[in-house]
Structures are given as structure tokens and as C-alpha cells.
């Protein structure tokens, strides 16, 4: 498969009253065309900032301080704002958690759908209207023609998210970034949206970065999974390995913390403590204060990403013992 996205040594910092603080710390990963990469982690792990860095949509006090992001042949970190604008909504697209805040409340659905088509595809209003109807049909919205003249508040949460998806897909992007797109939805609606996204991905062959904190959703939709903790990638692997053979203690803890809907009696293995804040400097491995397996080396030296198999890496000293110390510094090259 051909590579779609290559992120290398990305570091994103925020200017705050306490100085510049890194939210994403030197992470590297890549993904192929047509692949779904799930980024999982809890709040403060840097998963959303990673996706916003790729989109070039960081808040005003955030900046990419080093590293590169290659989408096909373009280096996104070298693009000007104007050049990024031409890419966003076109080859690079995003869906947000809360469609009500992402959609403009005073513009009709039709206006917001036509906009990317007219700007990027240079369609006339009439052509854009035709395409909009086809797009709404594709995402399963009944009576698409009438919906064009409606406003976001007239639609339900699930319908709004469908509209968001249709806008994001209007120009058939090669990469779609979805930041918690189903978190605000009820489970029955979430199931509908996940099915829809899978269907559309197969049809359009786009790469999807799916940011979520829900391990159930990950199992449902991912090809590969990247687990983040406190701004770092701690484990990256194909979806089966993550669930059947997790290596990093944080990944294991995360899986053990989810109560099982199918289990009668259960005991949760709790990870102690909570996510460190951005300004907390932790020596060695950033997870060691919460890690049940922490040893002396964990407190002193930061572990590299060790290769577990060709498709699976874990940033943990426990791997050194297993793999006889052959660090595979870049997740997958």
C-alpha cells in the first residue's frame, strides 16, 4: 500500500503564562491510503492537538515548534495559511465532536454544503446544489432537497453529524480527520454513524484519523491504533494486537478500566492517580508515577519505542527485556 501521511518528530507547544509548554512531544507515525488510524487516550493526552496540528487549525497560542507532516508529497508544516486553506475541505477534511458548534447557525444547510464545492471545485451554484442533494442522499438523510433550505437547529444531533460528514466529504478528501465524532451521540445513533463512516470510507478509499477515548469504538472501526499518554505515543499496533496482546502498561490499564457489558461479575483494575498536567516535568518515562511495573530505570531514563513485531511498538522498558534491546525508534518506516 502507498503511504498517505508521514508525521515525523512532531512537537506542538502552547504559549501560556508559565512559558511554552509542549502538548505533543516529539511523536512520529505514518499511515497508508485507505487506512483507519485510531488515536486513543484520555483528556490531556495530546490526541486532539495532534489532529489539529495536522489540519493546521491550532489555537492562536499553539504552534508546531519542530517536526514535519507530509501528506502525500506536500509538507504541511511549510505551507502558508493561504495554501492550507486551499487544502482544507479539499484533500484534507475534518469532522468535529459537536456538530452544532461546527455548523453555522445562521446559514442554511444548503449554503454550508455548497461552499466547499463552489470554492474548491469551482462549481456554479446550480451544479453545487445538485451535488449537495446527492451528498445528503449518500449520508442517509431523508428528503435531501427540503433539507437544503433548513437551518442546523431544525435537525437532530444524529442528522447534524450526518450533515457535517457530507460537508467534510464534499470534495472527496484523501485524508479525513474525525475528532470524537460520535462522543456526543446516543449509542443507537452512534452505531448508525459508525456504520455510515465505514461504508463511505470503503467507497471513497480515503484515509481516516479517528480520535476517540472509547475503546469500544476503536475496536469497531480501527485498522491500526495509536495510544497516546501525556503528549507521547506509548504504543502503536494493528487493532487485533492492541486488544489481544497489549504491551504497554497504560494500554493494559486503559482496557482493564472499561466495564464489560457482557460480563456478570467483574473487578476493575484501576490505574492509580491521574494524567499529569502540561507543565509537570517527569523524569524518565512519563507514565512511571502511575505504572504498577515501574523500576529504577523507568524513573531515570526515557524509554524509546521498542519494536514488538514489525507492526507493533511499545514505549516501555519492559520491552527491552523481551526484545534484547533493539529499539525501533520510529514507529514504522
Amino acid at each position: 500500500m502507498t503511504q498517505l501521511l508521514q508525521v515525523e518528530n512532531l512537537e506542538t507547544k502552547f504559549r501560556t503564562a508559565d512559558g511554552k509548554l509542549p502538548a505533543v512531544r516529539n511523536i512520529s507515525f505514518s499511515m497508508d491510503k485507505g487506512e483507519t488510524l485510531c488515536i486513543v487516550g484520555e483528556s490531556g493526552s495530546g490526541k486532539s492537538i495532534t489532529s489539529l496540528s495536522i489540519m493546521g487549525l491550532l489555537p492562536p497560542n499553539g504552534e508546531i515548534s519542530s517536526g514535519s507532516i507530509h501528506l502525500a508529497d506536500d509538507n504541511l508544516t511549510e505551507k502558508t495559511e493561504e495554501q492550507m486553506e486551499r487544502l482544507r475541505g479539499n484533500t484534507l477534511s475534518m469532522i468535529f465532536q459537536e456538530p452544532m458548534t461546527a455548523l453555522n447557525p445562521v446559514l442554511t444547510i444548503g449554503y454550508q454544503l455548497r461552499e466547499p464545492l463552489m470554492i474548491h471545485k469551482k462549481m456554479s451554484k446550480k451544479e453545487a446544489n445538485q451535488s449537495s442533494i446527492a451528498l445528503l442522499e449518500k449520508v442517509g438523510i431523508p428528503n435531501p432537497k427540503e433539507k437544503l433550505s433548513q437551518y442546523p437547529h431544525e435537525l437532530s444531533g444524529g442528522m447534524r453529524q450526518r450533515v457535517m460528514i457530507s460537508i467534510a466529504l464534499a470534495c472527496e478528501p484523501s485524508l479525513l480527520v474525525a475528532d470524537e465524532p460520535t462522543t456526543a451521540l446516543d449509542v443507537t445513533i452512534q452505531a448508525q454513524i459508525l456504520d455510515l463512516m465505514k461504508e463511505l470510507q470503503t467507497e471513497l478509499g480515503m484515509g481516516v484519523i479517528f480520535v476517540t477515548h472509547d475503546m469500544g469504538v476503536v475496536a469497531e472501526i480501527a485498522d491500526r491504533v495509536m495510544v497516546m499518554y501525556a503528549g507521547e505515543v506509548v504504543e502503536i499496533a494493528d487493532v487485533e494486537s492492541i486488544f489481544e496482546d497489549p504491551q504497554h502498561p497504560y494500554t493494559k490499564g486503559l482496557l482493564d478500566s472499561v466495564p464489560d457489558v457482557d460480563g456478570d461479575v467483574q473487578d476493575l483494575n484501576v490505574i492509580q492517580g491521574s494524567m499529569p498536567s502540561l507543565d509537570e516535568e517527569i523524569s524518565g518515562c512519563r507514565f512511571h508515577p502511575r505504572c504498577p511495573f515501574a523500576t529504577d530505570i523507568c524513573k531515570e531514563k526515557e524509554p524509546p519505542l521498542f519494536g514488538v513485531t514489525s507492526n507493533h511498538s511499545s514505549k516501555c522498558w519492559l520491552q527491552e527485556v523481551k526484545t534484547n534491546g533493539e529499539p525501533n525508534a520510529i514507529a514504522r518506516s
Partner: peptide
């Protein structure tokens, strides 16, 4: 409702 929950098993 039960069938709609994504399970943590790929």
C-alpha cells in the same frame, strides 16, 4: 441498545 454498544473486541 445492547447490540448498539461497540464491544472492546475487534
Amino acid at each position: 441498545l445492547l447490540s448498539a454498544i461497540p464491544r472492546t473486541n475487534p
